[in-house]
């Protein structure tokens, strides 16, 4: 059950200050990293919404983001649609596709759900890879970014684009929090706890799953459309299942079902990748070992561990321990 605790609000404020502060201080390379973090953060917010709060561990989210990227590229660069409309179109298209995937997979659970989403993700990958209009292995180029000159912003400037992406992270976070606190989001938490009981209470479970999956897909689509604008080029690699796998790793590193944790995870992951990548070409090895260590420590990622630690301290000070938010059951 998603709720804003003081710790979460404090962490959000800190992240916002750090992100904006860094955007104004960083060099070109730093801004690229910040943009990368922001785009990944949006994707993992979308994934945490379904996996952390609905138990729908999706391996389709990388492909969904890829569909958002291709959707934007096709609409904007190929069909010549105005960028804002192309952005909305890409988000809507990805949402519709995600809704359908969610509806079809709603009956599968556990490893079967993971596999079913993986299958649909791979289907999208193969389709885009094999269909000539999408440019095959070469991908599509000639993509432009949104034109915000009315606001006096030139998004071709990397600082402006990084700030724009940060604003989109804030928007995506607000959207996730909004959905999770609505009746639909509360139902999703109930379904996560006991599907059987929610059904017996009169809830049409598959619809809740499909709706939330669709909304999550829209956010993943936003992430993809931003990625397309960032590198101004799309290729099938965007839809690879390893992107979904990495997104899942980021959610776990940050703290599943905390919504704030995945933001931390995204920053941690991208920085780790670049830092380790600068020292050795074998950064996968480091990531793999970190992931194994985090999972085996049984903590709920970085932010989950922090929440647990704060919870214990508070419990030690108060005579009656009634911790409302316990990580893993948020």
């Amino acid at each position: 059950m998603f709720r804003h605790t003081p710790l979460r609000v404090a962490a959000l404020a800190l992240l916002a200050v750090a992100g904006i502060g860094y955007a104004f201080g960083a060099s070109y390379f730093g801004l690229e990293i910040l943009t990368e973090i922001a785009i990944l953060a949006i994707l993992v917010l979308a994934l945490d919404m379904v996996a952390g709060f609905g138990g729908m561990v999706s391996l389709a989210h990388g492909a969904l983001a890829g569909v958002g990227a291709y959707g934007y590229a096709m609409l904007q660069a190929q069909a010549g649609v105005a960028p804002p409309i192309a952005l909305l179109g890409a988000i809507g298209l990805t949402g519709a596709l995600a809704w359908a995937i969610g509806a079809v997979c709603a009956r599968s659970h556990g490893i079967y759900f993971i596999m079913a989403t993986l299958a649909f993700g791979q289907m999208a990958y193969s389709y885009i890879f094999e269909t000539p209009v999408f440019g095959g292995d070469d991908g599509l180029g000639g993509i432009s970014r949104l034109d915000l000159s009315v606001l006096g912003l030139d998004l071709m400037d990397s600082r402006n684009f990084a700030l724009f992406c940060l604003a989109m992270v804030a928007l995506a976070y607000a959207a996730c929090a909004f959905v999770l606190r609505s009746g639909l989001g509360r139902s999703l938490s109930g379904v996560h706890e006991s599907e059987q009981r929610m059904r017996a209470l009169g809830l049409t479970v598959w619809r809740v799953k499909a709706h939330v999956f669709g909304l999550s897909g829209m956010i993943a689509g936003l992430s993809g459309a931003l990625a397309a604008q960032h590198i101004m080029y799309v290729s099938p690699g965007l839809l690879s299942w390893t992107v979904s796998g990495e997104a899942l790793v980021v959610v776990i590193l940050g703290g599943l079902g905390t919504l704030v944790g995945p933001l931390v995870g995204a920053a941690f992951f991208v920085v780790l990748k670049h830092e380790v990548g600068a020292i050795t070409p074998y950064w996968h090895l480091v990531t793999g070992l970190v992931l194994i260590a985090v999972v085996m420590s049984r903590a709920n990622g970085i932010f989950g561990a922090l929440e647990a630690w704060v919870g214990r301290r508070r419990a030690a000070r108060q005579p009656q321990p009634l911790a409302k938010e316990v990580p893993g059951n948020a």
Binding site: F178, V179, R181, S182, G183, L184, G185, R186, S187, S189, G190, M198, L201, G202, L203, T204, R207, V208, H211
Partner: peptide, 17 residues
Amino acid sequence: LAAMVAQGRGMGLGRDG
């Protein structure tokens, strides 16, 4: 959750159900 679903507020977006 029981009351919310039974009152038909389990599918809505918007305010906290």
